[in-house]
Design a protein around this nucleic acid. Structure first.
Lengths: 157, 157
DNA sequence: AATTTATGTCAGTCATATTGACATATCTTG
DNA sequence: CAAGATATGTCAATATGACTGACATAAATT
C-alpha cells in the first residue's frame, strides 16, 4: 500500500490552520491551547469529572492541574462535589467560560463552513465518516463514545 | 451559524490518534514530533531550504536549529550548498531518513486506508476537498502551493 | 479497619517553542 | 567597489505544556 502523502500532508496543514485561529484569541487572554481544550470539553459535557478530562486529553493530572486551576481562579469554570460520590469534582463552565468557548468555536465553525460550502449532504456525511474512522475505537472513553454514538447522520441540524 | 461541534471534536480526536501512532515509534529513536515533521518534509521535497521549512512548520529558526542539528548529526538528513545561491543550505533525506519517514507514513497510511475503506471515489474526493478547504489560501508558501496545486478538483478563487 | 479510588500537590525534568541580539558568508544594488 | 540585504547559524534567557515519582487527603468500598 503506497503512502497517502496527500491526506497526510493535508491533515497537517488543515489542523495547523484550524487551531491557529483560536490561538490568536487565546493569546489575548493569556491562555494557551491547553486552556481551550479544557474549557471546551467542560462546556460541552457539563459535569465532566477530572478523570474524564484526563482520559480525553491524554495527559497527566499534574499537567492538567495548573491549567485547570487557572480556569477556576479566573472564573471560567466552577466545580461541585458529586452527589453520589463526593470525592468527585464535577466541572461546569460559567457564563464567562461559555462565552469564550463560543467565540473560539465561532472561528472554527467559520472555517469549517467555508470548507463545506457547496458540499452536497452526502459529501458532508462522507467527511464525518472519514474523521470518525480515523479515531481509535478501542478507547474506553465516555466523551468519545458520546461523540461517536451521536454520529449517525452528519447532515442533521 | 450554529457551531459545528461535531466536526470540531472529530478533528481533535482524529488528529490526536493520527499523530499518536508515529509518536510511539519516534520515542524509540529518542525523537519527538518535531523531528518527524522536519524529516518528513525534507524527504518529500528534496532540496528544501531552511527558510522553506520555517514557513511550513511556522516556527523560528532557533527552534528548528536543535532538531535539525540532531537529524544532521545522526545521519537522517544531509545538506548541500545551493548551486545558484551558496548561502542556502539545501536539505536532503538520506536512506536512513527515508526509511524512518516510510515507516511512520506506513502507520498513518494504514489508519487512513482503514478510514477510507468502502468509500466511493467521489467520497474520497470530498474528503480531500474538505481538507484542502480548511487550509489558509493567503499563504505564500512554496510547499503548500505544491500540495494544493497538485490537488485536482479544488475550488479556488 | 483496611483498602481502593478520586483528586490534589510538591519537586524536578524534558521537549518544544519563544524573543532578542549578534556573527558570518554571500548575493544584490547604488 | 562599497553598502546593504539576505540566508543561515548561534548564544542566552524564558515560557508552555508535557512528563515521572512521591506523597497527602477525603470518601467510597470491601
Amino acid at each position: 500500500m503506497p503512502p497517502r502523502w496527500d491526506i497526510i500532508e493535508l491533515l497537517f496543514f488543515a489542523y495547523r490552520d484550524f487551531v491557529g485561529d483560536p490561538d490568536d484569541v487565546l493569546d489575548q487572554f493569556g491562555f494557551g491551547r491547553a486552556h481551550h481544550r479544557v474549557v471546551h470539553f467542560v462546556h460541552r459535557y457539563p459535569g465532566l469529572k477530572v478523570a474524564d478530562l484526563l482520559d480525553v486529553l491524554r495527559i497527566t493530572k499534574q499537567s492538567l492541574g495548573r491549567v485547570l486551576k487557572q480556569l477556576l481562579d479566573e472564573g471560567y469554570i466552577v466545580q461541585k462535589s458529586g452527589a453520589a460520590d463526593r470525592r468527585q469534582r464535577l466541572l461546569f463552565a460559567t457564563a464567562k467560560g461559555e462565552a469564550l468557548v463560543a467565540q473560539l468555536a465561532g472561528l472554527q465553525t467559520d472555517r469549517i463552513s467555508r470548507a463545506l460550502r457547496d458540499f452536497k449532504p452526502d459529501e458532508v456525511d462522507a467527511v464525518g465518516r472519514f474523521l470518525s474512522g480515523m479515531i481509535d475505537r478501542d478507547d474506553p472513553d465516555k466523551v468519545l463514545q458520546a461523540i461517536l454514538g451521536a454520529d449517525s447522520g452528519m447532515t442533521r441540524e
